[in-house]
Amino acid sequence: MMGMLARAAENIYWLGRYLERSESVARMLQVTEQLSIEIRGLDPELAAGTWDDLLSIYPGSGVASPGGDDPDVIAEALTHAFLLSADNPLSVASSIRSARENARVIRDNLTMESFILLNESHLRLNQYAQHDTTDRMEMRRAVSSTRQEIFGIWGAIQQTFTRDEGLRFLDMGTVIERAYRTLMLLQIKLPRMLESPDQIDAPIYYARIRADLKTVASLENYRRTYGTELDPMQVARFLLFDRRSPHSVHVCLRMLKRQFDQLEYGSPLTNPARLLGKLDARLEFEEHEILASTALDQVCSELVDDVIEIHEAISRLYFTV
């Protein structure tokens, strides 16, 4: 069978990563703002501090903390930095721009419907950036409409793409980015989540856990499984091991493995297959050991390294010919 052009495969894989990244940053902006508004009357300092997590979960942003303790000033600066800033490579606008650049390069592989929606989203964000909007209502609207647009793009892709290698690379890019972000979130948030609730106001404590679940688009999925009971260990288990939630690390890696196995059906064992098999087995059979660990955030950090290694192995196998 003839493979697809290696450069095109790499572009399409990164298109998946950029789309997922832009949606995840937009989602995180929404959730952070919401949480900060909810708790600012109770604990203004903590409300301002919620924004710091954004910087920790996206260490590559190069964005400096605006400082001070006025939640409005902080919110405005960071929303701008993570939504529109061209200097921040992880901002929604930068990711959409990169996604669109990648899409232009492989336009012959994309369907018209998918390209047009992506291009429209890029142009709209460009307009916001050109007006240098700092108005928060405007930015809120931009965040929420951009998220909807990204879902539209995914819909168009899923409905119109040929079921071939290209779609597999796109899906692989999407789920590897998602697994990576969920693990980054857990790594940063787990220590605080696992603090005893006595040390902090209960409403704030639970609002934060709810926000964490929302950050990885999993609150509704969680409730469907466990109802309204928010036990931190249960949340950690859910985000790492749940088999039905599309954002759980195990589900992401299984989707990745499935796409990969189909690409490599009948081929001799490759390096990414070996790494994926090992990681999948660990998540499958070591759930109890992992959850019992006293340093769960440390385990998450190891898993982040594993995901990065898989990404590198995939790049070497397919994109460097």
Partner: peptide, 9 residues
């Protein structure tokens, strides 16, 4: 040949 995901074609 072109460089593809499955080697040279």
């Amino acid at each position: 040949f072109m460089r593809t995901t499955r080697g040279k074609h």
